[in-house]
Design a protein around this nucleic acid. Sequence first.
RNA 1: GCGUUCAUAGCUCAGCUGGAUAGAGCACUCGCCUUCUAAGCGAGCGGUCAAAGGUUCGAAUCCUUUUGGACGUACCA
Length: 567
Amino acid sequence: MKIKSHIAAIFQEAFTQSGIEPQGEIAIHEATKAQFGDYQYNGIMPLAKLYQTNPREIATKVASHIQTDGVIEKVEVAGAGFINIWLSDNTLSHYATKALADERIDVAITSHPQTIVVDYSGPNMAKEMHVGHLRSTIIGDALAKLFEFLGHCVIRQNHIGDWGTQFGMLVAYLEAQGVEQSGELKDLEAFYKAAKKRFDEDAHFANTAREYVVKIQQGDTHCLELWERFIGISLSHCQEVYHKLDVSLSPKDVRAESFYNEDLSHIVTDLENAHLLQISQGAKCVFLESEEIPVIVQKGDGGYLYATTDLAALRYRATKLKANRILYVVDARQSSHFKAVFDVAQKAGFVPQETKLEHIAFGTMMDKSGKPFKTRDGGTVKLIELLDEALIRAKEAIKERENYSQGELETLAKVVGIGAVKYADLSINRQSNYIFDWDKMLSFEGNTSLYLQYAYARIQSILKKYEGDVGACEIAIGDAIEHTLVLSVLKFEDVLTKASLDATPHTISAYLYDVATDFMKFYEQNPILKEGLEKATKESRIAIASLCAKTIELGLEILGIKVLNRL
RNA sequence: GCGUUCAUAGCUCAGCUGGAUAGAGCACUCGCCUUCUAAGCGAGCGGUCAAAGGUUCGAAUCCUUUUGGACGUACCA
């Protein structure tokens, strides 16, 4: 349920009745301490300043008009002029029971659906996916799922790098090796290195490679075929990683760089027609007042650059795909690039003013000692190897705990290992650099995927033992612990809404961790299946537990993480 | 040099766009299993929110300066 806006509406009514005009939107905050109730309203104090009166006086007046026969149980004026808000057990119980019966646990489908483009992952076809692609892929996928769940139309765009000079070399090498025996392509990295070596050592080959670059660009059938074949193989490597990582990207989401080739010259002429273009040192540039450095859209030799492609993609997404919101889940180091490109696109009218362009920036992945994540010899870590290691480590982390069969262990390791890698990334503020620490992410303690999966499994174990229809049970909050827990669960919709507006998956993880810890406390104190419990109490508790499980499951699903019935 | 960004407990991180005594987890010290998974729960310890000014009823949050780090800085993406 939308708790905050629900409360805000009641406050709006109270303001109207007391003849006071609130300043802007009524912002309801969660109470900072339990003694201050469930929620609080802090907007009276700035208002009092405007009216030049005593804040407590206004607060008291507004509070006296608050309806307390619905979701709000009581309000209290406190401190300098805070209004503290307590919610009603009965109403919360009612909403919780309703949520339990609903597949979406009563989270509404948005009434303002948008078309949202999410650009993420974006691997380079010349090389194998490495850790640098991990964050974009994980965060982007979670955001796409979040928007989708809320009822938006999501268009995933995997902007793969399939164009550029290195493909001449790779394609020439592919041909030299024999197209049918492309066995070496099992390891793209090795293939690239071998091609590079040959390029450096064999002048004749280097010439062919350079010729092929031109030929590909000119549409030479033979070279294009080779190129397509190469891209196909490389892309299948990516799909393998996506499958292992359990992300929703598929080949149909690919909208490669090369897709925009034909449009690049138009971008330049359109910028020219809009009088935005200047020639500087031989290159065609757009100079922005805010930036010292121009955005170069065409090189001195006539070649186009990534800014040109990005502009074409931006226009395509805004006009052809009719996006209301376009998100780029890309490393924070490119923030100045996106700032400039967005600026140019808007000035040139490539995107309508009302289209929201957002660079969803994230920090660099660091190792335990705080240095950029690398292999021992300083190379980049292949993503597929990192994921394989996750499975091995997950197995290590759980195998001693229970007597799992080999098959069971394999299944568990996948869910646990991949979940841990994703959750570690999604549980911290994406803007900052983050420390990749195997031991921490595979711990059962603290804000980890395992803790949530464990809480879920505990509930499943209880549900399995319960003989009755949980769906028919009614929730009736019996004490303060249950009040807190049920309220936590009902905050789900508020949390998802906020996370989708700010594109901050970590607020969802923080929330799920809250739900899980609240559940653990409840679990310790309020036995569910104990003999001699009153029927209504037992039913209410099992229903609360079930609702918690559903919330955790759904929340993790949005983050792209699976749950387990036994752990 | 210029620009962006960051600095919160020993460590890893929250802090909801200015609110009440700054919160978690780890680590450390205690306590809790004849009861639904102790992979858990509870309690304690731990802070000059980098520093100094300013804005105001009120600042970790906004502004300025300083210090320290990361990143970017025109024909790579």
